[in-house]
Amino acid sequence: AIAAKSLKEVRYHLRHASDWLVRFGDGTDESHARAQAALNHLLPYCQEFWIGSDAETQAVQSSTGADLASLKADWDALVDDTVQEATLQRPAVQGYVPQGKLGVHSEHMGFLLAEMQSLARTHPQAVW
């Protein structure tokens, strides 16, 4: 039941994000330029999806996890279809060295963690 609910949620978010990318890409010159700039900036970070951590590698070896490389072709096809429908160009893969799964993060991670942890720190006895 949890897996079915998760799959439903993922499909919803994929559809929602794809629809908005198409709207921005096919919208005004301004929205198109901003969507393209966002793709150019953010898509290289997705390379980290395909680099397995030690835990992920062990999960594949024990048949309890998915081989990330086997998912890449389908992911690329979904991204390419959406980018094309949005009349945008997929940027070339270059320059990014994924290290997040190795625990190496940019200074931005501290700000993100602080934001995400603020509620729990403000109300340490809360239960949700």
Rank of each mutant, 00 (worst) to 15 (best):
Y12H: 14
Q89F: 03
D74L: 12
H123G: 00
A59F: 00
A3W: 07
V60S: 03
L88Y: 01
L42W: 03
G65R: 06
A92Y: 02
Y45L: 13
M116C: 06
T57K: 02
A33L: 08
F49N: 11
E48F: 05
D29N: 06
L88I: 10
S63I: 10
V93D: 09
D80R: 14
C46L: 10
A120L: 05
V60F: 01
P98L: 03
I51W: 10
E9P: 00
G27H: 01
Q94V: 04
H32G: 03
A17M: 09
E115F: 12
A120V: 11
L102E: 12
H13K: 00
Q58F: 11
Q99V: 11
V127P: 00
P91N: 08
Q61P: 04
P91V: 13
Q99R: 13
N40E: 08
D29Y: 12
L21M: 15
W20D: 06
S63P: 02
Y12M: 10
W128C: 09
D74A: 14
Q117M: 15
Q125S: 14
M109H: 03
G95D: 12
Q117P: 00
A4I: 11
Q99A: 06
Q125F: 14
H105M: 13
A3Y: 06
H32V: 09
E107Q: 11
S53K: 02
V83G: 01
A4C: 02
R11N: 11
V22N: 00
L119T: 04
L71A: 11
W128P: 01
K8A: 08
E56P: 02
V60G: 02
A33F: 04
A33H: 02
Q58N: 14
Q117V: 08
H108M: 10
F111N: 07
T82R: 04
K101I: 12
A73L: 03
A73N: 08
L119P: 02
K72T: 04
V10M: 05
A1S: 15
D19S: 06
L78M: 13
G65Y: 00
A126F: 15
Q84E: 03
Q99Y: 07
D76A: 13
L42M: 10
S118A: 15
M109S: 09
A3M: 10
W20M: 07
H32R: 15
L42V: 12
D76Y: 13
Q36N: 04
E56Q: 14
Y12T: 09
W128V: 13
Q61N: 15
M109L: 15
D74W: 07
D26C: 12
A17H: 03
L43P: 01
L43G: 03
L14Y: 08
W50S: 09
C46E: 05
